[in-house]
Structure formats: C-alpha cells, structure tokens
C-alpha cells in the first residue's frame, strides 16, 4: 500500500453522543455507505486525513516512477520496453488522478509537491529500495503492485467519492501491471540458470520490503480505528499482509522460487500461512529517511521540479500573452 501510518489527528474515537449534530449526520451517511462528495460538510479531521492519505498515495506513484524508470532504457526487448514505459506512464497518470482527487479537498497540486520536495510529506517505504537487475522490474510488478492492489481494491468502496472513483480507474491498470510483472518473472524462472538466479535474487531482496508496505500492526492504533470508522481504511494492516502472503506463496511455488523466510509454513488450523517476523527496525529507518535510496529519490524529484520551473513559467506566460492578444482582437 502506498499510504502508510496515516495520522488522523484524533486521540480517541468519539461516541455518537459526543458528536455534534453535523458530525453525527456525517457519520450516519458514512455508515449507510453513502459517498461523501467534495462540496458536502465533513469533519476537518476527515478532510485533513484524506489529504494526507491521498497525497501520500500520489507521491508514491510519482516517486515509484524512478526505480522502474531506471530500467526503461535497458529493457531487453522492444516489447518489454514499450510495456515498461507504458506502465511508468500509467503511474504518472495515477499520480495525476490522485492529485486531482486531493485538490477537491481544498489543496493545490503545487502545495502538495512542495511538501514532497521539502521532505515533509511521506511516500511508500518500498520505493527507497534500488532496482539492481531486470528481475527487479518483474518483482516490483508482481510483489509491489500485488501488495498495492490488496489495499486498493477495498478502497474502491471508500467513503470519499473522488478517491473511490480514482481507485476504480487505478485498480484496473494495477492488475495489468501485476500480470506483466509476473510474466517477466515467469520468463526468467523458466529461462537460463542465470535468469533463474536473477529472479530468485530479486525475490530475496523484495519479499520483506513488500511485507513492510502494509505498515506495522495497527490493531491498537487509534488512527486506524478512526480511519476505518470513516471508511477511508477498510482492512487492518495485518489482515492485508496475511492475505498478501496467502496469495503470493503459491505464485512463488508455481515459479519454482523460494520465499526467503525459513518460518514460512502452511497452518491448516488457521487456513493461512504462518510467516516470520518482519524487521520493523529496518522499516522505521527507511521511513525516517535512512533507506538505500531516500536521498537519491528525493534529489531526483526536486531536480526535475526545479529544472522544469522555467518551462512551466514559459507555458503560463505564453498562455497569458495569447489570452491578452485574443482580448485585443475581440475589442
């Protein structure tokens, strides 16, 4: 998931009695699965939390273009190159829909990008890992997009109309991305010994960071409870992580690859896979800015933004001149 540990600004869950009449009416609508639309009244904390969540998701799409973009010029065939370029392009498109959804909450894309560039806004921890081989492009599609879909499919039903509609469009494309990732892995796993080793190595490096994408257990988190009450979070992090493991392990087996977890085993009683402990120290370090690529990713983004400033200014200046000329002509 592309939004991790989103804070709601609340310190406890309000009972209906504690709510103002407006808050109560709002919660009733959410409870009845009626979508909240931009012009309607909403609690300030709901609005702010959604901005954080949607923008974090958007930023993840934009930063996520870098690790995959890293292989566009080196993709091994013309078809793979076209597919990867189209995929990274889709991510730019997802970023765009999501910034638009966030803008309906009264914040501009420029403000959000400033927050990203200044390091104030977060994006998913996963994109701070490097793509070292072509197999990493397969692993990202298979695992990272797979994990994102786990979270995003339920979010199609989230309470905020523009976000839910953005998710519907995004999910369609993400499932295509996941299939192409798996297809890359399949080709490698059935390929030469070097290719198979490349696939296994990618799984080794991306498995645990993918499990971290769901965020630490939030069973006790007041923020998660509040977000679930607002229906902008549908499942707990642990539920989604379990679902992801259950879905992915058979896929790895089908590829003939080994999931790098000695504690992984089927638990017939639970009807789920048991798996080993995630290294949350590493996760917190990456979130705090100490991942292998945090600085590089942010620097690249800021550079593109700063180097593009004169272009954006020129486009604005030209549009203004054109409008002024049209006015003179009309007069």
């Amino acid at each position: 998931m592309y939004a991790q540990m989103v804070k709601t600004g609340v310190d406890h869950i309000q009972s209906k009695e504690e709510m103002s009449p407006e808050e109560r009416a709002f919660q009733d609508r959410v409870d009845a699965d009626i979508k909240i639309e931009p012009k309607e009244w909403m609690p300030e904390a709901y609005r702010k939390t959604l901005i954080r969540q949607i923008s974090q998701h958007a930023h993840s799409e934009i930063i996520g273009m870098q690790p995959e973009g890293n292989w566009i010029t080196r993709a091994p065939t013309l078809e793979r190159k076209a597919i990867l370029l189209a995929k990274v392009q889709d991510e730019a498109g997802h970023g765009l829909y999501l910034y638009c959804a966030a803008e309906t909450l009264g914040v501009s894309r420029d403000e959000l990008l400033e927050q990203l560039n200044s390091g104030k806004a977060k994006y998913s921890s996963i994109f701070n890992y490097p793509t070292l081989t072509w197999a990493d492009i397969g692993a990202i599609g298979w695992l990272v997009d797979g994990a994102a879909i786990m979270n995003q499919v339920p979010l199609q039903r989230c309470s905020y109309g523009p976000y839910s509609r953005a998710m519907v469009r995004i999910c369609k494309e993400e499932s295509f991305h996941q299939r192409q990732g798996y297809d890359i892995m399949m080709k490698l796993a059935k390929g030469t010994p070097e290719q198979k080793a490349m696939a296994q190595d990618a799984l080794n490096r991306w498995w645990w960071p993918s499990l971290m994408m769901f965020g630490p257990s939030d069973a006790e988190s007041v923020h998660s409870a509040q977000s679930m009450r607002w229906k902008i979070k549908i499942n707990s992090n642990d539920e989604l992580r379990q679902k992801f493991v259950d879905q992915t392990v058979p896929q790895a087996e089908y590829l003939g690859l080994t999931v790098p977890d000695p504690d992984l085993k089927w638990n017939a009683e639970r009807g789920h896979y048991d798996f080993g402990a995630v290294n949350w120290d590493e996760f917190y370090q990456v979130v705090a800015g100490n991942g292998p690529c945090n600085r590089q990713r942010l620097r690249t983004r800021v550079k593109a933004y700063e180097e593009g400033r004169w272009v954006r200014e020129a486009a604005d200046a030209y549009a203004a001149k054109k409008a002024a000329r049209a006015q003179v002509k009309a007069a």
């Binding site: 273009m65 973009g69 566009i72 190159k81 730019a92 970023g95 550079k303 593109a304 180097e307 593009g308």
Partner: peptide
C-alpha cells in the same frame, strides 16, 4: 523515454 519521470510536469511525462 529517458525523460520519463524527469520532465517539467506530470502532463509532460
């Protein structure tokens, strides 16, 4: 394709 992710605005990407 070298521009992808580095252009002046998302629309240009």
């Amino acid at each position: 394709s070298e521009w992808c992710g580095h252009s002046p605005a998302l629309e240009e990407d």
